[in-house]
């Protein structure tokens, strides 16, 4: 066991970690930030995606101790300063980009990385970028629309196509 400190959503946070403690365990159990989810054990589903030093990372496939001193952003840090939904979050609600909500945190974090790298992605680019995020509810249709809308591009209105 050792203490690990990271800047999480802008605040310095410290919690214990064993050598084998994964970042996702450190966040969920150590900090009680339970918005980051675990949906698989083979690094496929992407429900655990967070940002580490600005890049998308699967929090289930990285060790907490390795990230001592890192800057981490999770779904809990995505709202605007006044607590209202951020642009991507709002687009997910507006375009019904989520149903059960379990994959949603990882989806939003991946979408945020995409829009940082590519502010006006095509539909194909959105679909390709979300390759590492599995959703079982939406058929991705409205997720893709939400990401396109969040990038400021025109999309068909909800429930009118």
């Amino acid at each position: 066991m050792g203490k690990v400190t990271m800047t999480v959503n802008g605040k310095s946070r410290t919690a214990e970690a064993e050598g084998r403690t994964l970042l996702v365990e450190w966040l969920r159990e150590g900090l009680r930030l339970t918005g980051t989810h675990v949906g698989c054990d083979t690094s496929q589903c992407g429900a655990c995606v967070v940002h580490v030093d600005g890049a998308p990372v699967k929090a289930c496939t990285v060790l907490a101790q390795e990230l001592d001193g890192a800057e981490v952003r999770t779904i809990e840090g995505m709202a605007d300063a006044d607590g209202s939904l951020g642009t991507i979050q709002q687009a997910f609600q507006d375009y019904h980009g989520l149903q059960c909500g379990f994959c949603t945190p990882g989806m939003v974090m991946s979408a945020a990385s995409l829009l940082e790298e590519n502010p006006k992605p095509s539909e194909a680019e959105v679909r390709h970028y979300l390759e590492g995020n599995i959703c079982r509810c939406t058929g991705y249709h409205n997720i893709v629309k939400a990401v396109m809308a969040a990038s400021g591009q025109e999309v068909a209105p909800v429930a009118a196509e």
């Binding site: 930030l33 918005g35 779904i75 809990e76 709202a79 609600q93 989520l98 909500g101 379990f102 945190p105």
Partner: peptide, 16 residues
């Protein structure tokens, strides 16, 4: 109507 439950799911406040 936009879904009210989305707000907690989109902010990491769902309770699974």
């Amino acid at each position: 109507t936009p879904r009210r439950e989305d707000v907690r799911f989109l902010t990491g406040k769902g309770r699974y």
